[in-house]
Design a binder for these strands. Structure first.
Lengths: 209, 209, 209, 209
DNA sequence: CATGAATGAGCATTCATTCAT
DNA sequence: AATGAATGAATGCTCATTCAT
């Protein structure tokens, strides 16, 4: 995955440093996507990034936890950027339309950035592992469902949706998308567009007034 | 968790052997539930089971994979047993009623066997980890969605449900229940009965004719 | 240094285990004595003991701290055993005689077990280092001065000594012996017997009534 | 600790260079005093001195050994300066008086420059460590006992002391003071003045004619 | 049926130092 | 006078597994 160097540079890093960091982060993402979180070791990242030694990773990131934090930032920023771009065409007042767009875009994201989603799922699953980064599984979860839940809440108040529980619906949607991601990862031949459409249909019916 | 010795004995094992196996499996389940899969090592299992050395585990199970396989069998059997018992009172022809029962019972299971569900979720998440057991995450998933999907299929043919995609709905339901499990694991004070009811409502609306 | 296997066996260990432990402890003592504490790594111990891998050390001792604890026990037991044996001939009531015997024997110990004393000094110096064993430098110190201080206390009460501060005198004696040890380590040609005699003279005068 | 820049400048260094060197040396002293020699790494020194990178240390000192050498010079100069100043009031001919002054001043030094003494003790203890500076533990020791020994020698010739061994007495005194330093470091609530007085009494009796 | 002893491969991390500006 | 970037070697430790009884 291409990692944005500017994002790194914003932190006040030099160009070279930002470049190397981005390269390492990219290699880490690829490694997690390919081998899973548990098999993502400094040695494998080094190999993937073509570094001379794992020492370079330790040099640029305080910790494995620090590296993972950076990966998580990169990946979740990529995702929200993607969602933001695609949602611009939709009328903000059209709650059901927004919900459908959200779901279909989320599934489309799997197609366009399969690595990204894989990483998100893997990190959520291993958040409480020994590596002990600052973010628990629930926090990663909130990162996913937070915005969605607020949208649903708003829509319900306006009467755009039926008598739903925003919390439950948001959770269900996020989980359903994750499920699709897992299915896609296991068998890349599945028709993601159909999945997206049917998932949107499902939750459209479920939230209809 | 109490592990059924008879199940072990069925495999043609002696009583003592079955007892020890059951003890080890129980300790493994408890360890996964308490510390998560990644922290579930032979050393910790040994300690929990009160064994003298990890050697005993290697003796009774060919592999860590083998042990995990056995754990998975035990746990999923416990769950299907639970679901079977609770679904006996429902009229088999009442498809929507069955669906609602399934969902509510699934959530109720979380309350009654929290360890079991935790193990199921953990194992699904780490299925592709280094330990390399014979069962992938998807297979564990199929184990969950298979029966449900067939029910939905049947119901749709009979016209009991709307124009749904059984595959998608089954996946969504399974994932939603998992989501609730994760939420419950993170915060045991959540009202599981409410969650179950609202989940059932959600999918009732989503599948209504 | 020859490490007593029986001492190990007392802890309920099998003969083989006790043997290997003793061998590792012996190699550790030799390594500390030769290279100093800071250069005493598992790798060097392995080499010295002729082990196949450092793994064996981790197998027999929970920690580097654990190993060091065992070393300390062995060494200090060797020393007190030595002191006990040599003090048997002296009349317990003869306080000054006992003091002289203690000092001369302590110095003689340096000659007979030079490694032992070197280890004791090294460990006291590095007690607060990163390795974090359960014993601080002060504790190691108390281990040295405790008995001596009580003897002096008793002697003073009986009027066998002048108006001394047992605490200070005990500390001074222990430190003086350590100083001799350091001097001997740096230059093995020094006349230890003379040192012992003169040290005894010095403190005889200092504590005289 | 305040490090004298002039001392640095004497070596023909520019003012800025001398300033930076002094700052690094001061940070090193503080670090050794706080964390002990073994935990005194370039990284920690950098942090303490508020430098941007450890590179600056390597720039100003050829080696870790070089840095430590400089630290040792600074610290021992501070100490001898302190001793010189305080001994001016005493009649040079009064040998016992000088001895008492020396001991009491040495202990007083612990109170006034606790960091300094801590560094001295730590460096003596770790002199033979991996860092391999040019000064062995014994040399550091000679640095302490040399002058004292000469004084005692002279005093004995003049008949001011009894039949003592200057070498042994000097060693014992230096070691005793170190012992007090260690005790003080471990428990700062000890009464240093009392310790000083009793130590002086002890060696007054020991060296009396 | 069970055990004690041993093992090799792998892990993240820390260290002082050097290259090239 | 100073700096950013990189580096190689080593450390203690954990893992599941196997050999030989």
């Amino acid at each position: 995955m291409q990692v944005n160097i500017d994002t790194q540079a914003e932190l006040g890093l030099s160009v070279t440093e930002a470049t190397t960091r981005a390269q390492i982060i990219g290699a880490t993402i690829a490694t997690i996507a390919d081998h899973g979180y548990a098999r993502t070791t400094f040695a494998r990242i080094k190999e993937r990034a073509g570094l001379s030694s794992t020492r370079l990773i330790s040099y640029h990131f305080t910790n494995k936890a620090g590296l993972m934090q950076a990966v998580l930032s990169t990946v979740s920023e990529t995702k929200s950027e993607y969602l933001r771009e695609r949602s611009e065409g939709v009328d903000p007042a059209d709650r059901p339309g927004n919900l459908r767009a959200y779901i279909e875009t989320s599934v489309a994201f799997l197609r366009d950035y399969p690595q990204c989603e894989r990483v998100l799922v893997e990190m959520a699953a291993h958040a409480d592992d020994r590596d002990g980064w600052a973010m628990t599984g629930v926090m990663v979860g909130q990162l996913r469902t937070g915005a969605l839940q607020r949208q649903l809440e708003q829509g319900r108040k306006e009467g755009a949706f039926g008598d739903i529980s925003p919390e439950i619906v948001a959770l269900s949607i996020a989980q359903a998308v994750d499920g699709v991601a897992a299915a896609y990862a296991a068998d890349p031949s599945v028709d993601l567009d159909r999945y997206g459409r049917e998932l949107a249909d499902l939750f459209a019916r479920a939230t209809a007034r």
